[in-house]
């Protein structure tokens, strides 16, 4: 049965800096420094700062899950546009755009979660991102494109 690791609050001195490697070995477990696809180091966010109020951690986790659901909904929309809708002018173009947006959203989700978690643990401002604006503008644009393609197909 799955058990959460027994995590203790970090010592006061590690409030704004990463803990030393010896001190944090048992805290990191197998989630120590890992390399992302882009080659940048992605650390376990638990290796820095102090354990935050659980409400902040859970709010961050729900936000991550909302991003994942957004990616899955875009994927479902893309698959549906290509395979389920019949005789819709430009359906493949529309579907591929939705699937591309879905992949970008999924690919950035974990990094966003880890960055937010790290900031929460350090008591620092949350990292700014243009992805929500990009996603909103992209989805709105796709809606307009879909409507335009529908009208063009009916002419």
């Amino acid at each position: 049965m799955y058990r959460l690791p027994n995590l203790r609050i970090c010592v006061q001195s590690c409030n704004v800096a990463e803990t030393s490697s010896g001190e944090s070995d048992d805290r990191r477990g197998n989630g120590d420094r890992r390399r992302s696809v882009a080659g940048r180091v992605v650390s376990d966010p638990r290796s820095v700062g102090t354990d935050p109020d659980y409400r902040f951690t859970l709010a961050n986790e729900r936000t991550f899950l909302a991003w994942i659901r957004t990616a899955l909904a875009l994927a479902a929309g893309g698959l549906g546009a290509i395979n389920l809708i019949e005789n819709f002018y430009g359906q493949e173009f529309l579907g591929m755009l939705l699937l591309g947006l879905s992949f970008i959203t999924a690919a950035t989700s974990y990094r966003r979660w880890a960055g937010n978690e790290r900031s929460i643990r350090l008591g620092a401002p949350l990292p700014a991102s243009r992805l929500p604006q990009f996603l909103t503008a992209g989805t709105a644009l796709l809606g307009v494109v879909a409507a335009a393609l529908f009208v063009i197909g009916e002419l």
């Binding site: 989630g31 638990r46 991550f64 879905s102 978690e117």
Partner: peptide, 26 residues
């Protein structure tokens, strides 16, 4: 008891699963 409740392993696994699934769909 006020301990940390984050779960990076589960979060990472779901993140990777979604990336893989959306890539396969694409």
């Amino acid at each position: 008891s006020g301990f940390d409740v984050s779960h990076p392993g589960g979060t990472r696994a779901i993140g990777r699963f979604t990336v893989l699934l959306t890539a396969i769909c694409f």
